[in-house]
Amino acid sequence: MQQAVQISRTRTSEPLPSPVSFKQKLGDAVLNAFTIDTLQVNVGKLCNQACKHCHVDASPNRTEIMGRDVVDSCLRVLADSEIGTLDITGGAPELNPEFRYLVTQARGFGCHVIVRHNLTVIFEPGQAELPEFFAENRVEVISSLPYFTASQTDNQRGSGVFDKSIEALKRLNAVGYGVKDGLVLNLVYNPVGAFLPPLQETIETDFKRELRDRYDIVFNELFTITNMPIARFLDWLRRSGNETSYMTKLVSAFNPATFPGLMCRTLISVDWTGRLFDCDFNQMLEMPLDSGLPQTIFDFDIGKLATRRIVTADHCFGCTAGSGSSCGGSVAV
């Protein structure tokens, strides 16, 4: 595993240098959830990588991972509710010993399963046959590849990550991912620095052309995601003198047309201890759900949670800038 970079000391109590607050920008608008169609389960902070922009502060040195009791509670919620999608993230979720149990159990009762797979984890001990495992279970694979060249990718994700990622993508293609119906391979672009992503369809065209021509790799869709000004990326913004200009950029690009597509409106997030959050970013900032709501997977009540008020703060400018940003890419034209 690669050497971890430092764990962020940035906490929500340290205000972002935003020219206006997110609440001021919202004005009279109210952000409520529409429904819950996705349970996003963060199974822990352990990862074989330590990316410079990681909002989870994940690394090989982290020890916080979800145990069987929380996994079983997540499965019970999925089995007993109309929530059709399980979105598994981390860290590198595959490093959690309960990962394959979670996937196979959820698939067993027909749940659509998404895994946020960092590609390089297949080179870790015992993980070589992950592509076959994903294919057998018809898992949707979503993988980060910040750019189609080595220098940009390695600058963000660590030395040698690009070459390993290319090899992993070839293995996924070899078992049918991105090729056969039902074996979906989506990639994620995020900017390698303090700027907004390009238009999703434009950069997707580039990725498809370049990965095909250079490496004979195919995939289904490319999602663009904006770097969130929290945790390790915020540390980098501060060290590099980009914090104020990046926040100004996000605020200037504030776009209310993103509201209907924001992921917090259809998703609920669970941390490794079972606590519930409006999204994975709020989870990392330890911003709990609105008071009065069930706060853990153990007392999950979809009737109380499905139309809950979303808890916001200034980092939410990240999801509402420009074309918007979500776990499924941009959300507005």
């Binding site: 750019y147 060249t149 940009q152 900017p191 620095g193 700027f195 907004l196 992503p197 390009p198 238009l199 434009t202 950069i203 580039d206």
Partner: peptide
């Protein structure tokens, strides 16, 4: 420079 990056160009 910002505009180029935000439209998907790279440094090359």
């Amino acid at each position: 420079t910002n505009s180029c990056l935000e439209n998907g160009s790279n440094m090359d």
